[in-house]
């Protein structure tokens, strides 16, 4: 009997995922909750690959991971794409959209670093953003203002590197644009962007 990391229940391995992957973190029921609507989206001029939409059970799990600080959940968000992405982007440097230092201290961990650690790639906490910039309550204007304040950490050398940029949720794309600016000005050769969940207004209008 294996233990599901998300619903904490014991289960009998029953899908092809469990057959090939002894470390599969999810049970049969939770595997079905994964949003497989992988699509490209252009947000704020940045083309990013979204692995699903910001809704349903996976949204609840992301909130439980980020807000309730359930650190064990870090493995489920890139599942089952982590292996494939590690192969496709072999040689790239994995960089993630930053949280503010105060927020990281409050949580006790950087939630994006936890998610990026599932990739078998070289990782670097290259970016930082100043304190007092919580995005949730802000409108579009506020978000645009923050994106200018994302900067490269001192002592990080990414000149000529190919970058895989990760973020959890993309709404307006302002953060991603800010990250791109900072990375490009530091001399990154190319940047490919992946978001776990797409919080697109148009999409939510279409469905409700």
């Amino acid at each position: 009997m294996r233990l599901c990391r998300a619903c904490l229940k014991r289960y009998e391995a029953g899908t092809i995922f469990h057959f090939f992957d002894m470390e599969c973190p999810l049970c049969n029921t939770c595997l079905r909750q994964i949003d497989h609507r992988v699509h490209f989206r252009v947000a704020d001029g940045i083309r990013c690959l979204c692995l699903g939409y910001y809704e349903g059970k996976m949204k609840d799990y992301l909130i439980r991971y980020k807000e309730s600080l359930d650190y064990e959940l870090r493995t489920i968000f890139l599942y089952p794409y982590a292996t494939l992405l590690s192969l496709i982007f072999a040689g790239c440097l994995a960089v993630w959209a930053p949280s503010s230092p105060a927020r990281i201290k409050e949580r006790g961990f950087d939630h994006m670093e936890g998610i990026a650690s599932n990739l078998n790639l070289e990782r670097c906490a290259a970016l930082t953003k100043p304190d007092g910039t919580e995005q949730k309550e802000m409108g579009r204007q506020g978000r645009l203002a923050i994106s200018d304040r994302i900067t490269l950490n001192p002592g990080v050398d990414i000149a000529g590197r190919r970058i895989l940029l990760l973020d959890d949720v993309v709404s307006t794309g302002a953060t991603l644009a800010g990250c791109h600016r900072a990375l490009l000005s530091a001399g990154a050769r190319s940047i490919f962007t992946i978001c776990l969940m797409d919080n697109d207004e148009e999409h939510s209008k279409k469905h409700f």
Binding site: L3, L8, R10, D70, Y71, E72, G108, F109, G114
Partner: peptide, 8 residues
């Protein structure tokens, strides 16, 4: 089963 290992 209901206990996880935190970041530290």
């Amino acid at each position: 089963d209901g206990i996880g290992i935190g970041p530290t």
